[in-house]
């Protein structure tokens, strides 16, 4: 039960072909600059697990249950995420009672089951939305300038730093943006909007020199 072949946006898992929403776009255009020369490097991170988690942030049982099931502390500070290097699990704050757990593809069933079991009789919920999203990393020295062309959120180094995330508009679609380092950022976007957003990113990054990894 392991992956057999994998390109960035098309892969076969257990004899079933998976295609990301950017399968055509990523193949069609690799940018106008080499990776070294590019001001912006775009890369799709397809096929992750996305579990939407709902619960009461004031209830320690809920917080403990999530921590136990996925190994990451639930961020209760708005607009932040917690990341666990060992498992690769990320939990982002979405609202006072809503979080997004991002994890490797393989772990979806295990995580969903562990969360449900952990919640027991609590009023909490987990919803698998893994196929409803994709993620795009936006790296390079002009990454923040690129985001600033589309989002009203202040994404300057001073105001959007490692560990920060924000739901907002990027161009004309809703996204969850995150900051990893000064020059490494990313967005989670709904599947049906992904191609639109990708085209917008490519268009808006052309003067920086854009490279698709």
């Amino acid at each position: 039960m392991s992956s057999q072949t994998q390109t960035n946006s098309k892969a076969v898992f257990d004899d079933v072909t998976w295609e990301s929403p950017l399968v055509e776009a990523v193949a069609a255009y690799q940018g106008n600059a080499t990776e070294e020369a590019a001001g912006v490097i775009l890369q799709e991170l397809p096929f992750s697990t996305y579990l939407n988690i709902r619960g009461d942030a004031e209830d320690s049982k809920f917080l403990t249950a999530v921590k136990k099931a996925c190994g990451v502390e639930v961020p209760t500070k708005p607009n932040t995420y917690n990341y666990d290097e060992k498992t690769g699990h990320v939990i982002s704050w979405l609202s006072p009672d809503e979080w997004l757990l991002i994890a490797p593809r393989e772990s979806v069933a295990k995580l969903e089951a562990a969360l449900r079991k952990g919640f027991g009789g609590l009023h909490a919920a987990v919803t698998d939305n893994s196929h409803g999203y994709t993620a795009i990393t936006i790296n390079g020295k002009n990454a923040r300038e690129l985001l600033a062309k589309g989002t009203p959120v202040d994404v300057s180094v001073e105001h959007f730093t490692t560990g920060d995330c924000a739901q907002s508009l990027l161009a004309k679609t809703n996204v969850l943006m995150w900051a990893e380092t000064d020059s490494q950022l990313g967005v989670v976007v709904r599947r049906s909007f992904a191609d639109y957003l990708w085209q917008w990113l490519i268009h808006s990054a052309q003067d920086f020199g854009v490279h698709v990894r």
Partner: peptide, 18 residues
């Protein structure tokens, strides 16, 4: 701005679009 042509308004696509 860049709100022209295919970027004027988001075009939502299903997995079977292509």
């Amino acid at each position: 701005g860049s709100n022209l042509d295919d970027l004027f308004d988001p075009i939502r696509k299903t997995p079977m679009h292509a």
